[in-house]
Design a protein around this nucleic acid. Structure first.
Lengths: 354, 354
DNA sequence: CCTCACGATGTCTACGTAGTCACAATGTCT
DNA sequence: AGACATTGTGACTACGTAGACATCGTGAGG
């Protein structure tokens, strides 16, 4: 990289703890104490130091601190480079949670179009020097297991990772959302529920598929072949076209809202009414979900809760590797019933359409 | 913060340049040379160093490097904590662009609900030690101008910022998208175009409003009162309810897709057909835009281009503060015409509806 | 063959911070 | 009043890296 950057001169260099110390008439060590909130500093000294720092525009140098302590106070998040609402609102929640506990966040995206993307993203984070890595939307890379030399936190299901420690935060048992969606549709009277799954390298997508299937089996319903989508409305639309041709389909559960909207688009085009002929449910409760036609029944997630619980868990561990075994984090999902679901058409109605 | 972290012992410390040097039988300085790609290193030595580094799992310590050079190779992005598609896909693009030029990205969100959010976010970035700050979606804070002690890059219009340098990247003149949208609707035969603006603290929203207005005036069309929204579908829906009552409204330009979708929702509920009675245009081309009913005419943006041009500009400046005056960056917007726009209803059709 | 330039490598050092320990001043307890 | 704890402070140092400069060997030019 064609850097011209040469060594800084005495003049343009930012003020350091020594400059503040000189101005306040104390030692550099005392300045350090003040800025770390240590207790044994007299109120008078503290005030003088803070005043001097204010005057000089002093900021503690994070690099020096990191060099000395070996801790960067930075967490790395591996994201997937998608702008889908679910993942990106989770990132926002993570940043917010990190800031409140005084940690910085680095995000590295693993792009779908790059085969070695995951490992590369992790490497990038490790090169930056992070205290831990968070897999915000765990996926399988297909290839070798991920190797990380700092603790790892996974939100949701955990893929295979080689790391000194792997922590995991996931929804409490029983409160499973995909199962709830499936049950909701069955209770409305649908014989079975079709599923448009997310890409199966995503653990979240796998879980939804699994829970959907388990619920159908538990209810003694037939388990139709699921279709694998890629989270996009376009793929949902394609899948919807196929499903629209099958008059036996009366209920569809899409693994996210975008695919659900694509499905509805296809159903409309095929002249099938939603929810008159077919009920559709999405997942994520994206902002437009309430305003598409018909307003979409979906599942909203409390990402703030997930982020807070996850980060607290992780940072507690970093500060004290052996005390709390595992706080019971609960990730709240809520079924939001809107207008895209209803009872299945009666035999008469079906005949009328056919 | 209840840190237990004590000083690392010789054992658990990560390998450093000295360890690699010892193993490779060279000096630490030579290791440094190898990892910085300096030229005066023999191929043989380089290989031995790389092999030793590989064996030990050595990674250059960014904190030490930053401490010495005064450059962190990290850029700070101030985002707005929204999960809207436009902003978040821009962030993804920025991260990707930054990575290709070997920079790390820190994101700090400024939350709408926090009054001093902007300044706080910037402060957070400065405390982390960034080489520059990027305002990805410039807004006005209302309060005092922002004070930053590193160079600043703004994408789009530039608010008032006190910084050593303020660079700005914006769409090339003439290629304005909001004007194009307005012209598109006028050319279809609409007498005028109503506008649902974004929050006016966002410079992007102001620009769209301004360009819409200028275009109407240039065309000699009446300029209706614009409604100010907040980017959400809910607010678009509310605004749409009011507009639906006015039979004179035949064309609506919403400042983003979500509001457009809300508007369409309201129009549908009021029994007004889109685009039969009213044409609607959005902005951003969010993924579901092609799949809502009717598929939405909107404007897509090349965020990757914007991010690449902006970062290149910024980093060139950081490396050499006085060479290139200003590369001419062009930000490509594209009008995507779908099914939500058409000619206005004829007098007869209007009468029929009324 | 001597000088000089240049390539390859090493030595020494500073960057700004916080751990460790020392130590003075001021209590506090018997 | 003497021993001793407590509080506030400073001196010294290491962290891992890259800049400045020194040194050594080798080949080219006179």
């Amino acid at each position: 990289m064609g850097d011209t950057g040469s060594k800084r001169t005495r003049q343009d260099r930012r003020p350091g703890g020594n400059d503040v110390a000189r101005l306040a008439g104390v030692s550099q060590k005392t300045v350090s104490r003040v800025f770390n909130g240590e207790s044994n500093v007299s109120a008078d000294t503290r005030d003088r130091v803070l005043a001097a720092a204010q005057t000089l525009g002093y900021r503690p140098n994070g690099a020096a601190r990191a060099l000395l302590t070996g801790r960067t106070h930075r967490l790395g998040v591996v994201a997937l480079g998608t702008s889908h609402f679910g993942p990106s609102s989770l990132l926002v929640a993570l940043e917010r949670a990190a800031r409140t506990i005084n940690y910085a966040l680095s995000i590295a995206n693993s792009f779908e179009d790059d085969p070695s993307g995951l490992a590369e993203a992790v490497d990038n984070l490790l090169a930056q020097g992070v205290d831990a890595v968070i897999l915000s939307e765990p996926v399988d890379d297909g290839d070798e297991p991920l190797v990380v030399d700092v603790p790892v936190l996974t939100l949701g299901a955990a893929p295979v990772v080689h790391a000194p420690t792997v922590l995991s935060v996931r929804a409490a048992e029983g409160g499973d959302a995909a199962a709830e969606v499936t049950r909701h549709l069955l209770e409305l009277g649908h014989r079975t529920v079709h599923h448009i799954a997310g890409p199966q390298r995503w653990w979240a997508a796998r879980e939804r598929l699994q829970n959907w299937q388990d619920t159908l089996i538990a209810a003694g319903a037939e388990v139709p072949q699921a279709v694998e989508g890629d989270w996009t409305a376009a793929r949902g639309y394609a899948a919807g076209k196929a499903l629209a041709r099958d008059p036996g389909v009366t209920a569809i559960f899409a693994a996210n809202d975008e695919m659900a909207i694509g499905v509805i688009h296809a159903l409309h085009e095929a002249g099938r009414s939603v929810p008159g002929d077919v009920s559709v449910v999405g997942f994520d409760d994206i902002p437009v979900a309430a305003h598409v036609w018909p307003p979409l029944t979906t599942v909203s997630s409390d990402n703030a809760e997930l982020a807070t619980v996850g980060l607290t868990y992780l940072v507690d561990f970093l500060n004290n590797p052996d005390s709390p075994p595992a706080p019971p984090p609960k990730h709240v999902h809520n079924l939001v019933v809107r207008a895209s679901t209803s009872r299945p058409p009666t035999a008469g109605e079906e005949a009328h359409r056919a």
